[in-house]
Amino acid sequence: MFGKLKKASNGKLLEPRTIGIPRALLYYLYPGLWETFLKELGMQVTVSAPGTRKTIEQAGLISESEHCLPVKLFDAHLAELAGLVELIFVPRILSTLPGHIACPKLGALPDCARAQCPGGITIITVDINENRTPLTESMAQLGRLLNADETVIHQATERALSALRRARAVPTAPRKPDALNFLVIGHPYNLHDSYLSGPILQKIESLGVNAELVSFADRTALPEPVKWDTCSIMHDRLQRLVPSEWDGVIHLSSFNCGCDSIVSTLYQEVLREKEIPCMTLVLDEHAGQAGVDTRLEAFVDSIKDQHEHAATCH
């Protein structure tokens, strides 16, 4: 498979077999895709372990203090991989949806990662720009960078895409009857990082609420009025919500998120028009669970009281 041996920048031949993927940022938008693809190419793939308290502490120590929380966590996941693998895959994500752009921080990640990693580790990158180039083409480029044969790339792409489809097609649990129904929105890396969202989702469930996470598999969002890809998918979903089917929306935002600071107002406007209550919870490394619990409990109380009030008025 590695018929041609690859030359590193220092001119030495190397035959990398181990590659790492940081479990951070838009790893969560393409679940299963990259690790399946790289494994099918014959690489030994390590995805950094799911985040824990150590990850968040490490992030605070090594990352630039002005970054948003998800980028800080990316830095910690990168540091975890640095001692374990020869290559680390960090795509340059420019757009994940035709007609849209990604958060500009994602386009700078490979350069930031190179600056951060110690010598001896190669950051390997391809552009992901679904606005111009299909994802499969970006995958083929990655395969060629790793000197894989076209037939192997083709087969790996097929298998990776079906792994992605399987991972995205997680069925939503059936709704418990007589419970409130919440839609939980937020960037994939806020919703699916179990360390960040786990206690919040558990708390919502413990309050007897059916919580559905917004899906990013649906790719029909229009580029107006939100140009950012994942934000646009969420905005589009909110616009299509039927008020009688939803009792509330919870927005998991992260501290210092530039995109969210603009779009959360748009989300609120859409939901105000539909009269669906909405609450934004801001994830950050300093916030305790107590404040989040208080807000969630009060949000659920207020919705139940509003329902009761409406029932007695009619």
Partner: peptide, 13 residues
């Protein structure tokens, strides 16, 4: 509004 809590906010950090 009408004797029912419709919205609230708390100080953050």
């Amino acid at each position: 509004r009408d004797g029912v809590v419709v919205d609230f906010a708390m100080n953050l950090v």
